[in-house]
Design a protein around this nucleic acid. Structure first.
Lengths: 121, 121, 121, 121
DNA sequence: GTGGTCTAGACCACC
DNA sequence: GTGGTCTAGACCACA
């Protein structure tokens, strides 16, 4: 049996960073922290941050200017939203729906619970 | 920053075992594997399985007969369902709803996705 | 025939600790000895003390702050008193009453003996 | 700290045997089991039973006829009752009363509980 | 430093 | 065989 379900750290950092984009902590075109700066802040190896930024660069969410730093692209927010939405729908939702069925929860109940959640916020 | 989100092993075993109850692998009143047996099967220390069984005993899902073994109670299924439902609603749903809002997903879209999920199964 | 009536050590520690609460050695809200500290003092394994504290936590008599220590809850005294009273009435009293009958002791005699006990103290 | 509260085995046997006298399993003058017989029955060393019988002999509750066996004396019941009563009053009652006070139980409550106990029997 | 968990291995009582 | 308890010692996260 396997008991280590940790995601790779660079992917965990990616998730956190994307969250920050979605809540507008960073906006399209913004300069974002340098690899070294972020690495110190969150106490990980700079190489790990590098992998995060490279990954986001592949996705067209960040780009870099040699010798200057990393920046969000002009459609970083939209791309992040799309990427995360796809991940959520393809990876998370099936698990959630499976659980909902296993627990014999009616979909209408979910609607009720969602409304409660909304009103508490 | 913290990157280790592993649940305690005995709680992971608890979760897996509850799943098995919910999918009727074990039924109310069944004798379940002995502490040692399960420990060998899933390659953990007997003490760890013991903690799982003790935890489930507190919850009224299993009981034991000294020198004989552990058994599911007569309402193990119902109690498991109730326990898991509460956990899901209190712990998982808020995170899910938060994500749904963050990703700007309309609740009605979820309904559509749920129906797709249902028909594929 | 069985001649070993020893209670589990962690339950004996529980009893002694509850006594200390009842005689106000520890008061509601007090920080109590750390797991290791108590383990060294009474010369048992830290795991054994851990079981005692976990047991008391289930009963709502203690709680803990991670990395800080264990504390009595705000109604620790009341809960301890209630718990011990129930145990005494359900477990000890029947044995006592049975003995009293076996020894043909009149209940009114007990009252006299109780008064003697009171005045000697 | 000391965690072994076991009474000496021969005294435990003494207690059990006295109980049997008080419930009239053995009556004054009866021949009681031989040392060897009782030792086999309750699975202890014959020497241990021997200590029990010697102890009871000192108390005038049993006597032996050389080559024949052990017998209850003619006032074994009365002596047993007296002995146990004294033990109960001097050893057990103070502990009981102390607990009763510690648990803040009113003596009148005891009377009520005793009546309940009586009616259930 | 604190608590929390886990392993390895032991001994016990019960069946 | 079963569960129940205990020890010794380890590693982790948190503060």
């Amino acid at each position: 049996m396997e008991f280590n379900f940790n995601k790779a750290i660079y992917l965990q950092i990616t998730d956190l960073f994307c969250d920050e984009i979605l809540v507008k902590k960073w906006n399209n075109g913004d300069r974002i922290p340098s690899v070294r700066e972020l690495a110190i802040n969150i106490e990980v190896n700079p190489n790990t941050v590098m992998r995060t930024y490279s990954y986001l660069q592949e996705k067209g969410i960040v780009y870099n200017k040699r010798g200057i730093g990393y920046f969000l692209t002009d459609d970083a927010f939209e791309k992040t939203l799309k990427m995360r939405k796809e991940e959520f729908i393809k990876q998370d939702l099936p698990v959630i729906f499976k659980t909902v069925k296993l627990l014999d929860i009616n979909f209408d109940d979910l609607k009720t619970l969602y409304n409660e959640f909304e009103s508490n916020k």
